[in-house]
Design a protein around this nucleic acid. Sequence first.
DNA 1: TCCTGTGAACCGCTTCACAGCT
DNA 2: AGCTGTGAAGCGGTTCACAGGA
Lengths: 215, 215
Amino acid sequence: MPAARRIPEATVTRLPLYLRVLEEAAAQRTMTVSSEDLAERVGFSAAQIRRDLSCLGSFGIRGVGYEVEYLMLVINRQLGLDGERRVAIVGAGNLGQALARYGGFSARGFRVVAAFDADPAKVGTLLGDTRVSDASGMLEGLRGAGVEIAVITTPAQAAQRVVDVAVQAGVGSILNFAPTSVAVPEGVALRQVDLGIELQILSFYRHRVGDPAGV
Amino acid sequence: MPAARRIPEATVTRLPLYLRVLEEAAAQRTMTVSSEDLAERVGFSAAQIRRDLSCLGSFGIRGVGYEVEYLMLVINRQLGLDGERRVAIVGAGNLGQALARYGGFSARGFRVVAAFDADPAKVGTLLGDTRVSDASGMLEGLRGAGVEIAVITTPAQAAQRVVDVAVQAGVGSILNFAPTSVAVPEGVALRQVDLGIELQILSFYRHRVGDPAGV
DNA sequence: TCCTGTGAACCGCTTCACAGCT
DNA sequence: AGCTGTGAAGCGGTTCACAGGA
């Protein structure tokens, strides 16, 4: 009986990676993988992986490893990927397009059921295969479509307003790509990704030469 | 004399956020900010911020706070944003477009000096305002343009090949958006962002109801 | 008085090392 | 023999709490 422990945040962020390599393994008709195999594919230690997986229960086979199919099932269920998630994309720019067309979404059960933009020129066009609606109808639109996750790809100055409307519409999870920090009330899940910040972090690690700069 | 200490990785990832809110503050003609002010804007604790900034030297004014302009200068220099960084984008799809047009890049001194795609239909088109070249000329192209950072927005199966060529061309930093883990040799900086994984993490935190699922 | 800079305590995550199961 | 699952140790980062400067 898999004793489901509390799952540390750090572990949660790694589970999707395991899922990705497990799919690769399954595609190669691999039946079982050891923590060592997984370690090689994802790039961190075998101990780390055993510790992570032990949080989900204890279903590895000693002397053998983990059953690929079963492990995928367990991780999928833990992440809540066993059903469908209703997603809205707000902001029909290039990033919104990129996300709407990204195959990895639908493959994981994320369905884009609504799209919004404030620009009249974009309203009525297709984002992936979802028709873009006017942002003025967002509150009702999000409610009506039963959206659980809102993905924000608007300019920075619109982001907080969009978040507020989404929360009001009962959206429980927000993924913010706008280059500004937004606030959500207690109980709403939030993740923020800033593409510009990633480059800045890289920029730091670039000039690792001992540079004892003064003031 | 600001004693420049070693900067923890966690701190580095926060510096760009400080920069962002400092710019907002500067736009509002704010001359100084306290760690408390900053904490409110970025959303973590004042102690955290003081600790982070103390790594860059000690130039806060007790009883007052930090000078906005000077703090920006210090952080910019630490991140290596005081000069220009030559960037290439590989993969001219929607995500590549989104990045090329993203204002936050040029504002921070990141210049897109080359773009590549394997699709003949894309070659010759514009990515932002950079002409897309054929991927077959990537090695020479990257070298010739003196690219320091390669941003990868190709499909997963092309990513590792692109990384290998980039490294061979002397590119020191890689930002990978392709949904697969790539490997780089020692000494090359690497960051990976998977848009799909962010959604999966959110999905986990969504169903926080006590769900004692069995096997 | 007010806020910085920082030792010290604390906390969560990672790694080690090995007992125990197959 | 081989690999999992996990106590225990180790490590990095965060928070506390306060000494000390403006």
